[in-house]
Write a protein that binds this DNA or RNA. Structure first.
Lengths: 348, 348
DNA sequence: TTGAAAGCGCTAACAC
DNA sequence: GTGTTAGCGCTTTCAA
């Protein structure tokens, strides 16, 4: 183990009392410049670092932010959360926090983990991801007055705006994608989405529908809903293309569905279409700009995950360090909405 | 915040001393069954949880395991570490530990982070990934006597076997892949790898070369080395195929290269080969079974990451909890070598 | 501006 | 088998 150097060692070497050292570290403005500098020198010299456990006992602050890590469900979209996690770890470190990981199988077990963590490690706050309608996790934390930020809007009406959040504007993203396709000469642009009811999915569909309508194209009948798997995306794309031969492009709610759509669009079964419009292959745009998109040349919408993570830390730190309490912030919670950007590749 | 309930509360309600409660929790065998049960009941009733910070001050143990999180470099292989991380978080929780995250840009800054972390949060141990020749991180931890396990063998001769490690047998994996191709009727099987010098890459190449040689095929000239990008894989595959028309299958060191190889294998430029052997398309096998492999139908070698993570925790916990010190374990460090498994898809 | 004392919640010794 | 004492390293009163 590293040789443990305490505040007493620093005090002794610098020839001051322990409290003076503590003051230099926590309230430097109260110490004379000369003393301050001498203490700081000794701190550097000895490689002193405040012991978090001891400080925590006095202040009740652990400098820990807890977040859940998921197994990548479908395997394709998993990478999104990972990039977010990296950004979070980075941003947290810069603000003097560290990230504590936990796993949970569902909302209920996650709440149980909250209790566990809060009782044992006492993280100062939580970052919640994958928020959804009537999220019991947010309610629980709100109830206990535990500081937290969500990456994802509070979709449920009831919980709306009762806690700070950071999100990426999905409908703005699909709007940009749709406009890109319109500009490229496509008119009948389809949408492959998830079943209605998921906040994220509905939001992304809305951006497509709105943009299409604005361009004078009726989106009715041009949308399909399916679960988030490559095979489902392929089937849905095929169905849509077959039912409406005028469709020349597809905007998808995820890269998983988009990869499936790409399979369908490039399949030999579609060869007959070459008669109809030989030089215009079916364009496909995905969402999330995952490694898979890069690998298969899929145009996709990229989320500014680094910025999102940094915003989460900023918002959380504001509650943690500011005068405002969790409850006070609940009165008028801050939020950040970021814009995704279109990464154009061969597929569109 | 959750209402803080201390050991004193439990003692009072149960009608025993604080120490007895502590004994029930830490050395239950020393307390009378009847008392033990009563105390446990009160603990459950009050929802008491030991405060880690306080315990840490006494015992010096934080119940924290630190690991670095990387930004996914090439984007494809990144998912491997993520699945490992999930498994680690899970396994650690089951053993009473939590995972603390940190980032670092290189070995030097990682060592600096070690010092920081050790001085402040005092993690009980580290899990190192991406080990390589002459790894300064392992030496530093070894030097300080800090417990750690590496996911990845100590490739350098000098550090060999001086610390516990867990790894997946890359050469066994490529051997299985090569044998699979041989069984399918392929003879001239190529290999797309990384430049010599990386332990992992050399190991994987070795498995292919050995198996091919065993089958009576001289591997000379059938191997190409390149950096780990899809485009590089495609170029290398094309080069290999062009230079040796007899090549009908490729084993690749990573899914990134394999995806590139797949592009080359399926490209129209190879149409002329149909004359040579119409019913035998060029087979490709990757390594890591990433989401990309699943998405593009690539046969690939899957690492047992969950088991690897669990083994890391087991090994670390043995040092942390056993009588053996970090130094003692350095004398004859335990290690675990796991076998990857072949996931067969359309590509081979 | 600096120093002395108290105590956060816990567990390792030791006494009972 | 159970209770008492002390102290981990720090910060927060309060006094000098």
């Amino acid at each position: 183990m590293a040789d443990k150097v305490t505040i007493a060692d620093v005090a002794r070497v610098a020839g001051v009392s322990r409290q003076t050292v503590s003051n230099v570290l926590n309230t430097p403005e109260v110490v004379r410049e000369e003393t301050r500098q001498r203490v700081l020198d000794v701190v550097g010299e000895l490689g002193y670092r405040v012991n978090r456990a001891a400080r925590q006992m006095r202040t009740g602050r652990s400098q820990l932010i807890a977040i859940r890590i998921d197994p990548d469900r479908d395997g394709i979209n998993g990478s999104v959360l990972d990039r977010f996690l990296h950004g979070l770890t980075d941003a947290a470190a810069r603000s003097g926090y560290r990230i504590l990981l936990y796993t949970a199988d569902d909302d209920r077990s996650e709440v149980a983990t909250f209790e566990d963590l809060l009782g044992a490690y006492e993280p100062d706050g939580f970052v919640l991801t994958g928020t959804h309608h009537r999220d019991p996790r947010a309610s629980w934390l709100l109830d206990k007055g535990v500081p937290f930020v969500t990456f994802g809007r509070p979709w449920g009406e009831e919980a709306a705006a009762r806690h700070p959040w950071v999100d990426v504007d999905g409908s703005a993203g699909t709007a940009v994608a749709t406009r890109h396709l319109l500009d490229a000469g496509h008119a009948r642009i389809g949408f492959l989405g998830w079943p209605a009811g998921s906040g994220v999915g509905d939001d992304r569909r809305e951006g497509w529908a709105r943009t299409l309508a604005e361009a004078g194209v009726d989106p009715t009948g041009l949308s399909r809903a399916t679960s988030d798997a490559v095979a489902d995306g392929e089937a849905a794309a095929r169905d849509l293309i077959d039912s409406d031969p005028g469709v020349t492009a597809l905007v998808c709610v995820s890269d998983s569905l988009a990869v499936g759509a790409l399979h369908a669009a490039r399949s030999p079964g579609l060869a007959w279409r070459e008669d109809t419009r030989p030089e215009l292959p079916i364009a496909v745009i995905g969402f999330d700009d995952t490694p898979v998109a890069r690998a298969v040349g899929l145009t996709s919408l990229s989320q500014p995950l680094k910025e999102a993570a940094a915003s989460c830390v900023t918002l959380l730190a504001r509650i943690l360090e500011g005068t405002e309490t969790a409850r006070a912030s609940a009165a008028s919670p801050a939020h950040v909405l970021l814009e995704p950007s279109l990464v154009v590749r061969q597929s569109a």
